[in-house]
Simulated scan of single mutants.
Amino acid sequence: MFVIRRAIERDVFQVRKLLKEAGLNDKGINDHIEHFFVVEMPAEEGMTAQLVGAVGMEVYKPYGLLRSFVLERAPWNTKVGMNMIQILLSYAGKLRLSHVYLLAGASQEFFTQMGFSEIEHEKLPAEIQESEHVERSRERGTPMVYSCFPTRQH
C-alpha cells in the first residue's frame, strides 16, 4: 500500500536522493518543495516509512512546470504513476493555474495518455522558458502542455 501526500521540508533530502538515483536533475528542488507530492510506503513494524516516489512542479502563475516525476522500479505501476500526476494536476487547478508544461523524455506517451499534448519550444511561455530547469533540459525533452481549464487556449 502507498500513501501520496504533500511534501514537507524534511522530505527534500530523500526526494533529491530519489532523483539522483534515477539520473534526474535535482537542482532547485529546495525552492519548490511546497509544490511537491511524495509517494510513501507506510512504516511497518520495526521500520520507518520510506519515500519511493515524488512529483512536483515549479509555479510561475498562471503556469506550472511539472518536473521531478520519479517512482522507484520495485513499486512502479501505471496506476500509482497516474494517481501521482492526477493529484498534481488537481493541485494545479486549485492554484488556478491555466496550464502545466513539462519536458517529456521517454515518458512522452504516458503524458499523452494523461491529457498532455506536444508543443514547440517557441510556444512555451517566457516564464517557463526562463526557468533554470527548462534551460538545462531544453535539448533532452519534448515540450508538452496540459490545459487545466480545457476551454482556454494555450
Rank of each mutant, 00 (worst) to 15 (best):
M1Q: 08
F2I: 09
F2Q: 09
V3L: 13
V3C: 09
V3G: 03
I4F: 01
R5W: 05
R6F: 08
A7G: 12
E9C: 13
R10L: 13
V12H: 03
V12M: 00
F13G: 11
F13K: 15
V15G: 10
R16D: 09
L18G: 12
L24V: 08
L24Q: 15
L24C: 12
L24R: 04
L24W: 05
D26V: 07
D26Y: 10
K27N: 00
K27D: 07
G28V: 02
H32F: 13
I33N: 08
E34I: 14
E34T: 14
E34Q: 12
F37G: 04
M41Y: 04
A43N: 03
E45P: 15
G46S: 02
A49M: 09
L51C: 15
V52P: 06
G53Q: 04
G56D: 08
V59H: 06
Y60H: 15
P62F: 10
P62V: 12
Y63N: 14
L65H: 11
S68V: 10
R73Q: 06
R73S: 06
A74H: 06
A74K: 10
W76A: 00
N77L: 07
T78R: 01
K79S: 12
V80Y: 06
M82V: 00
M82R: 04
M82N: 00
N83Y: 02
I85L: 01
Q86G: 04
L88F: 01
L89P: 03
S90Y: 01
S90A: 09
Y91P: 02
Y91T: 01
A92Y: 01
G93A: 08
K94V: 12
R96I: 09
R96C: 07
L97E: 12
S98T: 10
S98G: 07
S98Y: 12
H99E: 09
V100W: 03
Y101W: 09
L102S: 05
G105E: 13
A106S: 05
A106D: 08
Q108S: 14
E109F: 02
F110K: 00
F110M: 03
F110C: 01
F111I: 09
M114I: 00
G115K: 02
F116D: 05
S117Y: 09
S117P: 03
I119V: 11
H121I: 07
E122H: 07
K123L: 11
K123M: 10
K123W: 12
P125Y: 05
P125D: 05
A126Y: 12
E127C: 11
I128S: 04
I128H: 07
Q129K: 15
Q129D: 10
E130K: 14
E130Y: 08
S131G: 13
S131V: 10
E135M: 14
S137W: 03
R138Y: 04
E139A: 15
R140F: 13
R140V: 10
R140A: 06
T142Q: 14
P143R: 01
P143V: 05
C148L: 05
F149I: 10
P150A: 02
P150Y: 00
T151N: 12
R152T: 08
Q153H: 15
Q153A: 11
H154P: 09
